[in-house]
Measured scan of single mutants.
Amino acid sequence: GGTTSGLGELPSGWEQRFTPEGRAYFVDHNTRTTTWVDPRRQQ
């Protein structure tokens, strides 16, 4: 941990993952979708 950059926890059902290249993306298990956009930035 320690790399949350002050955004806090992800919404319920979300998970942060990384591509083999090390790029972060976000998985929404509620809708079984993925996005490059941090859901915390859409609030």
Rank of each mutant, 00 (worst) to 15 (best):
V37G: 08
Q16A: 08
G8H: 12
R32Q: 12
G1N: 15
F18A: 10
A24G: 11
R17A: 12
G22E: 05
T19I: 04
W36P: 04
G6M: 13
T34G: 01
T33G: 04
V37F: 13
R17Q: 12
G8E: 09
G22P: 01
G13K: 06
F18Q: 09
T34M: 05
G6Y: 05
A24P: 09
G8K: 09
R17P: 00
S12R: 09
V27K: 03
D38P: 03
S12V: 08
E21D: 15
R41M: 13
E15L: 03
G8A: 11
G2M: 15
A24M: 14
D28W: 00
P20C: 08
E21I: 07
P11H: 02
Q43W: 12
P39L: 00
T34D: 01
W14M: 01
D28L: 00
P11E: 02
E9D: 13
T4D: 15
G1T: 11
T4L: 10
R40E: 04
W36F: 15
D28C: 06
L7H: 10
D28Q: 02
H29N: 13
S5R: 09
P39K: 00
T31H: 15
T34C: 08
R32P: 02
N30W: 04
R40H: 04
T3W: 07
R17N: 09
E15S: 07
W14P: 00
W36V: 04
T4H: 13
T19R: 01
T3Q: 10
S5P: 11
F26G: 01
G8Y: 07
E21C: 06
G22R: 07
E15Q: 11
F18N: 15
G1A: 12
E21Y: 01
R32A: 07
E15M: 04
E15F: 01
T33C: 13
R23V: 13
S12H: 10
G6K: 14
G8Q: 09
D28V: 00
Y25V: 03
S5M: 14
T31V: 04
F18V: 12
H29I: 10
T4V: 11
T34Y: 00
T33P: 00
Q42C: 14
T35C: 05
G2Y: 10
P39Y: 00
P11D: 03
D28A: 01
N30I: 10
W14Y: 05
W36Y: 15
R23M: 15
Q16C: 09
E9R: 05
Q16N: 10
T33Q: 09
F26P: 01
G2L: 13
P20Y: 04
E21F: 05
T3P: 02
P39G: 00
G13D: 05
T33S: 13
V37P: 00
R17G: 08
R23D: 15
G1R: 09
Q42R: 12
A24N: 11
T4Q: 09
L7Y: 12
V37I: 15
W14V: 08
T33E: 06
E15P: 00
P20E: 12
Q16T: 09
R32T: 06
E15K: 04
D38G: 03
L7S: 10
E21T: 09
F18M: 14
T34R: 03
S12P: 13
R17H: 07
L7F: 12
V37K: 10
F18Y: 13
T34I: 01
V27I: 07
T3E: 13
S12Y: 05
T4S: 13
V27M: 15
V27L: 13
H29Y: 08
P20N: 15
A24L: 11
Y25C: 03
G2S: 14
G8L: 09
Q43A: 13
F18G: 06
H29Q: 07
P11F: 00
G22K: 15
W14L: 03
Q42V: 12
W14K: 01
T3Y: 10
P20I: 12
P20M: 11
H29M: 09
E21K: 07
F26Q: 01
T35F: 00
V27N: 03
N30L: 06
P39S: 00
R40D: 01
G8N: 12
Q16I: 10
S12I: 08
E9K: 10
Y25Q: 02
N30S: 09
Q42S: 13
W14I: 07
P20R: 11
E9Y: 07
T4A: 10
E9A: 13
F26C: 01
V37M: 13
A24K: 12
T19G: 06
R41D: 15
T33H: 03
